[in-house]
Simulated scan of single mutants.
Amino acid sequence: MDNIVVEALIRALSVGTPLLLACLGAIINERGGVVNLGVEGMMAVGALAAFAVASSSPDANLWLAVGASMLAGAALAALHAVATVTLRANQFVSGLALALIGTGAAGLLGKKFEGLPLFNKVNDWNLGGFIINPFTVAALLLAVVMAFYLNSTRSGLTLRSVGENPAAADVLGVNVGAVRIWAVLAGGSLSGLAGAFLALSYRASWADNMTGGLGWIAVALVIFVGWRPLRAVLGALFFGFLYYLQFRLQGNSPVPTEVFNAMPFVLVLVVLALAGLRGQQGDAPAGLGRPYVRGER
């Protein structure tokens, strides 16, 4: 029984890793007052960039592949930053466009990588009999560091103030636009890192639509966890456990496979509805989704 519980926990942590990384990126975005619905697209281009570098030769450096994924995610996020922060476009429309651009571009450019071997992959670590993935360790550490950064550092307070009341932050000499652009780029790089986990470790291959809607779940997870990094760990673990159940029960149950495939997305709707009923949306930054124009109220 204990082995089953430990196995379920490890699997849930592993499956929940890309959700946690992408959720942390979205938290940084939204703490700065910018909504980015393009997480799915940034994960897709991050996965493609990582696989393209890692599959280029048997001696390819996996660190370069990880760096490429983060740069690709940040590059796509830069389009969103220009559109929403500089040009003050609607953040929701821009984010949706980003998701479509990212997934479409990754699918098109990734055609030539389908079926190619991955010479090296990021293997799990054996820490005293406890098997864990390096991406999972990095995600957990990032959650702790981000919580400390947002709550206990001057720059974290600046980021939060820009998301809560950009006009007040501007009066105090904060460059609101620069802070928001930095937040969007940081969020994009973490989404790209989530894609690298899929390409270099979890699936260790490239296939069109390999993100499978995880980016959309990560966006919803931000609301569910109340924009708090440490809560995001529990939220990712919860949804990771759902995916683990999905894999374990498929083929061992009379329930159709489609029901298990839809389970995580149905639960997203349920938890968001529960969050709305108990007023958790009140935890959102006050300036979230609103473009800032100096002198306007």
Rank of each mutant, 00 (worst) to 15 (best):
V174E: 06
N209V: 00
V222F: 04
V233P: 04
D208I: 07
S201M: 08
V219S: 08
L230E: 03
A218E: 15
A207F: 15
A194H: 11
R180H: 02
R231K: 14
L185N: 02
A218N: 15
L214I: 11
M210Q: 09
I181S: 00
A204P: 05
W206D: 05
L234E: 03
G213I: 08
R228D: 13
A183R: 00
I217Q: 07
A232W: 06
A218D: 14
G187M: 09
L221T: 09
A196F: 08
S191V: 06
L193E: 09
A207D: 12
V219D: 09
G226E: 07
L190S: 02
L221R: 09
R180I: 02
G192E: 10
A199L: 05
G226A: 09
T211I: 11
V176Q: 13
V219T: 10
G212Q: 12
G187K: 09
W182A: 15
G188E: 12
A178Y: 06
R180L: 02
W182F: 14
G226R: 11
F197V: 03
L190N: 02
M210S: 07
N209G: 07
A232P: 00
S191H: 08
V233A: 05
N175E: 04
F224H: 06
S205E: 15
Y202T: 07
A204Y: 00
P229M: 12
A183P: 00
V233R: 09
P229Y: 12
